[in-house]
């Protein structure tokens, strides 16, 4: 396949950026989207141009590093991560727009690379269960009802990619934050810190400059791991309960 790529190039955090057009040819439909970018970069390097910087690591859809907005959609047309998106979902001759995540809490570092450290700080504010090494009782001391365990797992699947923030018209981190709050708050092990957890995580989320939620649902549509929209309602419930109750 031959494609025209329009990619956001930005030399550094404070440098001005712009869309630059590139042509790539001989793209195989079996390539992943990142392999297509690899191909472009190999060309750019041999030409002596600077290759396009983008984050990636596992290329298995699990580390959450890769993230870019493809034709206006976070992670592109399929509901998966960019590394698991394959070129067969595009047509020969297509023009593809590639942009970084956009949110003031995710400043651009270079080209398609953004700074998502705000997510780490949200987790640090309460996204854990305090269990110093060695202090744990036997794993079977507290049975966990299966559906609680399943709900916890469903929400623990979040890979911290940031697509929810990128897709949200308000750059809100509600889906990410609610995924962790629900994961830990449904478990008996998470109960002692249940109230402070949600309150501190919401406070951290606000402090990082993420927007509020207007319930547009774009985040859940973009989430490659299918974190469900009602999780946000669940977090709101936890938050109101913790502040009022």
């Amino acid at each position: 396949m031959n494609l025209t790529l329009r990619i956001w190039r930005q030399a550094g955090p404070d440098a001005p950026g712009s869309m630059t057009t590139y042509k790539v040819s001989g793209i195989s439909p079996d390539m992943s989207f990142l392999e297509m970018l690899d191909t472009l970069n190999e060309e750019l390097i041999t030409r002596g141009d600077t290759p396009v910087a983008f984050d990636h690591d596992c290329r298995e859809g699990i580390c959450g590093a890769c993230g870019m907005v493809i034709n206006g959609q976070a992670h592109g047309p399929e509901r998966t991560t960019t590394c698991q998106l394959h070129m067969r979902h595009f047509k020969d001759g297509d023009t593809i727009d590639i942009e970084p995540w956009r949110a003031s809490a995710f400043p651009v570092v270079k080209d398609l690379v953004v700074d998502r450290s705000a997510f780490d700080r949200i987790i640090g504010s309460g996204g854990y269960i305090t269990a110093p090494t060695g202090s744990a009782p036997d794993a079977h001391a507290t049975p966990v009802p299966k559906e609680a365990a399943d709900t916890a797992f469903e929400h623990a699947e979040c890979i911290g990619c940031g697509a929810c923030v990128a897709a949200c018209p308000n750059g809100s981190a509600m889906l990410f934050t609610s995924a962790k709050v629900v994961h830990l708050n449904v478990l008996p092990q998470g109960a002692p810190e249940r109230k402070s957890r949600v309150r501190n995580m919401v406070a951290a989320m606000d402090a990082e400059g993420f927007g509020g939620c207007t319930n547009t649902g774009e985040c859940a549509t973009a989430c490659p791991k299918g974190i469900p929209l009602p999780s946000i309602a669940a977090m709101n419930r936890e938050f109101l309960r913790s502040s009022l109750g």
Binding site: G72, R102, N170
Partner: peptide, 19 residues
């Protein structure tokens, strides 16, 4: 106000969003 500030720059590739 806050929501608009949290998403200052729009995407170049426009989509009709649920926004």
């Amino acid at each position: 106000r806050r929501d608009i500030a949290a998403r200052p720059s729009k995407y170049v590739h426009k989509r009709r969003r649920a926004s």
